[in-house]
């Protein structure tokens, strides 16, 4: 079973739905229409990627799901509950990391728990666990300015994992990271996804990255954005990363998405 499945936009997966976006529209003050009646379901325990031309409204959609931005109309349900604002079941990984420069790695990772009033000893032991998970053991006492871009993003990821949210929202988490770090990071993330059983919603500009890490890819059209196509690149797991990158299913999926997005280039 390695064939890539393509669905029409209306397709509903039978698997349990974690996040459900229902005819959400967003008009920014000033009249920019970023999203137009967009409807999407994100299945539980899977990594879904949003892919689309620049400025099509991916960040907007992600922030609406996170509860950081109100929708103009429509609603978002997470695990059956209507989103009214940020919630404990969702965690956000920021494109610019959003680390506190005056706090150590340890405090940054524990910061979500600190805001929830978790006692120091408990939150630090949780934070230490996730610092280990993202491969930053030994850097607990460092400050963000002493870390590389890739390491800073790992801190952001650990912070999101530490609050044990079921949904992790990531806005281009690797865009400020060099290509080698990025590949290593993608592999680590696949590993994490396997262990964590969370629902990931991921925004990226890289077609290869989307195909490599996602269970589902949602292609968005140009602003005001609608769902153009949903692709499930069913990559064979259990083979080496290099084998995946040469696998026909991988190459086919990349090619298909490229063809679909090419029309937006001019």
């Amino acid at each position: 079973m390695t064939a890539t499945v393509v669905h029409a936009p209306g397709f509903q997966r039978s698997l349990g739905t974690m996040v459900s976006v229902r005819s959400v529209s967003k008009v920014y003050p000033g009249g920019v229409e970023a999203l137009n009646e967009i409807s999407l379901d994100f299945p539980k325990g899977q990594l879904t990627t949003l892919l689309g031309p620049s400025g099509c409204g991916k960040t907007t959609l992600l922030k609406i799901i996170a509860g950081l931005l109100p929708a103009t109309s429509g609603e978002v349900m997470v695990d059956g509950m209507r989103v009214e604002g940020p919630g404990p079941e969702r965690a956000f990984v920021f494109q610019d990391f959003a680390l506190l420069p005056w706090a150590t790695v340890l405090r940054n990772v524990a910061f979500g728990l600190e805001l929830r009033g978790v006692p120091v000893a408990e939150r630090e032991s949780i934070a230490e666990h996730y610092i280990g998970q993202v491969g930053l053991k030994g850097f607990e006492k460092h400050y963000p300015h002493a870390l590389s871009g890739g390491m800073r993003q790992r801190v952001g990821l650990a912070r999101a994992l530490a609050v044990k949210a079921e949904v992790v929202l990531m806005d281009e988490p690797f865009s400020a990271v060099d290509e080698q770090t990025r590949r290593k990071f993608q592999e680590d993330m696949l590993e994490l996804i396997k262990n964590e059983q969370k629902t990931f919603i991921f925004v990226t500009h890289s077609i290869e990255e989307a195909v490599y890490v996602s269970n589902r890819i949602i292609l968005l059209s140009r602003r005001p954005s609608r769902v153009m196509r949903i692709i499930e690149p069913d990559m064979p797991r259990g083979i080496t990363p290099d084998q995946i990158r040469r696998h026909p299913a991988y190459l086919d999926a990349v090619e298909m998405i490229w063809q679909a997005l090419k029309q937006y280039l001019d």
Binding site: K63, G67, P86, P88, F111, R159, V163
Partner: peptide, 10 residues
């Protein structure tokens, strides 16, 4: 972005 981060972590 730091303020949004704080809000998103409730």
């Amino acid at each position: 972005s730091l303020v949004e981060m704080g809000e998103s972590f409730l």
